[in-house]
């Protein structure tokens, strides 16, 4: 049994140190303890273990977040069609119920793991750690995590990903960044999807980008249509640029290790 989570499944929890320090003050049999217990710390410990695993396996991991119906799965299937024969990849699908999304991903030929969260409104790092046990051979490539459709809760849960990508479709309204600021603050990139529908909806792209940058001055933006393929090249380039960067960092690290080992011969 897993000793930390008690979940009855074997898996690694390397580097999960207890970091809280306590000072005591005693009076009678009641005591006051000064502690530092971060409520996100348990999730963050799992997230750190995931991050180390992703680094060792040289995986670029993107956590896709959005409201339901923004087109995350459509964006993914289109993306996979471009990348499948070029780079190893897999998808972790999070939904409250059903395996519909994982089925859609598998139809492209890609490997997919479905996580059903039941009543939970978000994926957490622990669930993702277990999902990785089902992807033992995935390395030197890409892992997409499609989070539960929800623009609120997934913002606070680090999964160990390299970046959160928030997908917003133009049918949803351009003021979403102001209404759901936590998510846009947490995301590295905003993908504005369904731009082929712009002639039919009242959506101001420039205003939306301005709102997103009020929340997060550094957020990057790509506009595209997963349906027609318009703008897809920018998204694919964004991913490839990051994958190259991650691989270069991994190569540098392995070269340093190699030097150390050679010096010991």
């Amino acid at each position: 049994m897993c000793g930390i989570c008690g979940c009855g499944q074997p898996h690694g929890h390397q580097g999960l140190d207890e970091s809280a320090h306590a000072e005591e003050q005693e009076s009678g049999h009641q005591r006051r303890l000064q502690v530092e217990l971060d409520l996100f710390s348990q999730n963050n410990r799992y997230a750190q273990a995931n991050r180390e695993l992703f680094q060792r396996r040289n995986l670029l991991v993107l956590n896709l977040v959005s409201s339901p119906g923004s087109g995350k799965t459509a964006l993914l299937t289109r993306t996979l069609q471009h990348q499948l024969d070029k780079v190893p990849l897999a998808v972790i699908e999070g939904d409250q119920q059903t395996s519909h999304d994982a089925d859609r991903i598998r139809e492209t030929g890609a490997e997919a793991v479905q996580l059903n969260t039941g009543r939970l409104c978000h994926l957490d790092a622990h669930m993702v750690g277990h999902a990785m046990e089902q992807l033992p051979h995935l390395e030197n490539g890409l892992l997409y995590i499609e989070n539960v459709g929800n623009l609120v809760c997934p913002a606070g849960f680090d999964l160990g990903e390299a970046a959160k990508v928030v997908v917003l479709s133009v049918t949803e309204g351009d003021d979403k960044p102001l209404k759901y600021p936590d998510m846009f603050h947490a995301a590295r990139l905003m993908v504005l999807n369904k731009v082929d529908l712009l002639p039919y909806v009242n959506f101001d792209v420039e205003a939306c980008i301005e709102y997103a940058r009020r929340i997060n001055p550094e957020i990057e933006v790509i506009t595209l249509s997963a349906q027609t393929g318009e703008g897809m090249e920018n998204w694919l380039e964004w991913i490839e640029h990051r994958r190259q960067g991650q691989t270069a960092a991994r190569v540098a690290q392995l070269e340093r290790e190699l030097l150390v080992l050679k010096s010991q011969l």
């Binding site: 006051r32 303890l33 217990l37």
Partner: peptide
């Protein structure tokens, strides 16, 4: 979001 103090017995 963190617990800073506990009263325990």
């Amino acid at each position: 979001l963190q617990i800073r103090e506990l009263e325990v017995e």
